[in-house]
Design a protein around this nucleic acid. Structure first.
Length: 588
RNA sequence: GGAGCCGUAGUUCAGCUCGGUCAGAACGCCGGCCUGUCAAGCCGGAGGUCGCGGGUUCAAGUCCCGUCGGCUCCGCCA
């Protein structure tokens, strides 16, 4: 007899065979209820002593998570004993035959969602953890999300192509994981940080529309939303511009939200410039659901009599304000001021709105007109507390942004739903004082806006004003994707490398293959990469991408299941022409 | 590299602030009873090097120092 699944049963299933795990046993003496769990769900099986004493004894000796195969008749449960919480709650299986396929040791934790289990233990026994509804469902959701995206892209005419994981290390970007080459002593591969150059090459090869669910590897410190290996939905198109990519992704995500969550995202998605994002939210990946917008009130206070503000303006700085939309106590305000001081601020001014009046140590320095203007700009009402920073612009962004996130946490503000937006108009380059040179904000293959190219070719005096043809997509305060229109002409790419401080010799050595490819009829092209792990976690309302990865690593990069990374033998190392200089290196 | 929180039966936690009935609860596990439960119920039992090391003290789960591990964050990283 062919086995079936709990999800396929009905009143007229008749005699069936089911395989699975003993989820729970309820022994009433004379009758035992056994909940059988398979990949789809639970089914109550019943065994009566009076009907089959031998079978009854066999079932009595079963334990949690034994692997069994049962045969018997499906029947309707007696009136009043149905369980509406089970999909099979109207049915039960009268067991006629039991086969024990495997036993199970006493479990390190129970296979249910009734009590929390430490993540450390869950990951060590991941195969048990994944038997639990919530853990299993996260992976099933991820599968459905991947399928939705894959189907959409295939329908749009995209070709799925795999690219190498073993590639070469390139400057810029994250730290590489490195693999010694046995066949090339002393040489190393780098594991791909992303398929960036390969997908551009595919455009040059004429593939027009490419996608891939690409594994990416980066040797950087971990976070709740960062693992050393993760998955990108990698997309590239030729003969397109920003609007094509943006439209494609908006349709793709709308479909996924609709199919999986039954939520209709409002299209087109909002767009905000990088500069506005930094001003209004102090972040290039804002979560707008909390409000708490930052406002620039420099111009309102340009004639202020308050020395601190006047000095800030005189030194070319700004004055920015945040309406907390709550009445904070003096000690709360003091704590916030201390917090901002730890970020390099010299302090904060504050105003409280009480009965259409401002109460504050600085209130007497603010004219009626200034006060009205500030209250209007910050949409303030009675009981609000307004925090004000005056100082250099960069510090203002940092302090107000950190203050905003801090307040969201401290005031335990709750946000629901999904806030999706594009961040656009990124600068192409950013000056790095440590290296004393410009670095690419996105990556070195991002095209500058046509009108700004001349700023790149001149003496780089105004290089930080060059805007990039780049776009990020942000969901609930997480960057879930980013992309750009690429440089497709060799001359421009060389110009870019030079702007990044590379000598011709150097970029030819490291990127000669790309420059050559660009010189053989490279079409204009661009693309995007979406972080599948993040997208999936946010859609499920989970705090960590570890919950949507089957076998994630801990914060120290250790796999609790296999204990990787581990030692390798001396002979193994010799074969690879490498030596360890780690103090704890342990040769076996 | 830095900051914070956490580590006590198999599990989830209480006990730590004020050192001395502080080895405790619930669930799980083992045994028994029980014919309609479904997180079954009732009775009984086993189970802990309080992460590890050092110090203070007559006495440390509790105080101090160090260390290891997990998590969150900064730096780092699309």
């Amino acid at each position: 007899m062919k086995r079936t699944y709990t999800s396929l049963l009905s009143l007229d299933s008749g005699c069936v065979k089911l395989c699975g795990w003993v989820h729970r046993l309820r022994d009433h003496g004379g009758v035992i209820f056994l909940d059988l769990r398979d990949k789809d769900g639970l089914l109550q099986c019943i065994i009566e002593e009076a009907l089959n004493p031998e079978l009854y004894q066999a079932v009595r000796s079963l334990r949690s998570e034994y692997v069994i195969c049962v045969k018997g008749q499906i029947r309707k449960r007696p009136e009043g004993t149905q369980n509406p919480r089970l999909k099979t709650g109207d049915l039960e299986l009268v067991v006629e035959n039991l086969e024990v396929l495997n036993k199970c040791e006493t479990l390190p934790f129970q296979i249910d969602d009734s009590s929390p289990i430490s993540e450390e233990l869950r990951l060590k026994f991941r195969y048990l953890d994944l038997r639990r509804e919530s853990s299993k469902n996260a992976l099933i959701f991820r599968h459905k999300l991947s399928q939705s995206i894959r189907n959409f892209l295939i329908n749009e005419g995209f070709i799925e192509i795999e690219t190498p994981l073993l590639t070469r290390s390139t400057p810029e970007g994250a730290r590489d994981f490195v693999v010694p080459s046995r066949l090339n002593p002393g040489k190393f591969y780098a594991l791909a940080q992303s398929p960036q150059l390969f997908k551009q090459t595919l455009m040059i090869a004429g593939f027009d529309r490419y996608f891939q669910f690409a594994r990416c590897l980066r040797d950087e410190d971990l976070r709740a939303d960062r693992q050393p290996e993760f998955t990108q939905v990698d997309i590239e198109m030729a003969f397109i511009d920003e609007e094509d990519i943006i439209d494609l992704i908006e349709r793709m995500l709308s479909l996924a939200f609709s199919e999986l969550l039954n939520i209709e995202l409002k299209r087109p998605f909002d767009r905000i410039s990088y500069e506005d994002a930094l001003l209004t939210y102090g972040s290039d990946k804002p979560d707008r659901r909390y409000g708490l917008e930052i406002a620039d009130i420099t111009s309102i206070l340009k004639d202020t009599s308050l020395q601190v503000f006047a000095n800030a303006i005189k030194d070319g700085g700004v004055i920015r304000a945040l309406n907390v939309k709550a009445s904070l106590s003096r000690s709360q305000i003091e704590q916030l001021i201390e917090f901002t001081k730890s970020l390099g601020s010299s302090g904060l001014a504050w105003l409280k709105v009480e009965g259409q009046k401002l109460t504050s140590p600085i209130a007497k320095f603010i004219t009626k007109e200034q006060a009205d203007s500030i209250l209007r700009t910050l949409k303030s009402s009675d009981g609000d507390t307004i925090l004000i920073f005056a100082g250099p612009k960069d510090l203002a962004i940092k302090v107000m942004g950190a203050l905003r996130s801090h307040l969201i946490k401290e005031l335990k503000l709750k946000a629901e739903g999904f806030d999706v937006l594009w961040v656009v108009d990124f600068p192409l380059l950013e000056f790095d004082p440590l290296q004393n040179r410009f670095v690419a904000l996105h990556h070195p293959f991002t095209s500058p806006k046509e009108s700004d190219i001349e700023l790149l070719s001149s003496n780089l005096e105004n290089a930080s004003r060059i805007r990039a043809r780049a776009y990020d997509i942000v969901l609930n305060g997480y960057e879930i994707g980013g992309g750009s229109i690429r440089i497709h002409r060799r001359e421009l790419q060389e110009l870019m490398f030079k702007a990044l401080g590379m000598k011709e010799e150097e970029y030819l050595e490291k990127f000669g293959f790309l420059l050559d490819a660009l010189s053989f009829g490279a079409p204009p092209h661009g693309g995007i990469a979406l972080g599948l792990d993040r997208l999936c976690a946010i859609m499920l309302g989970l705090d960590s991408i570890r919950d949507v990865i089957a076998f994630p690593k801990t914060q120290k990069g250790i796999c609790p299941f296999t204990s990787a990374p581990g030692d390798i033998s001396a002979s193994h190392m010799k074969e690879l022409y490498i030596k360890s200089i780690a103090p704890s290196a342990h040769l076996s």
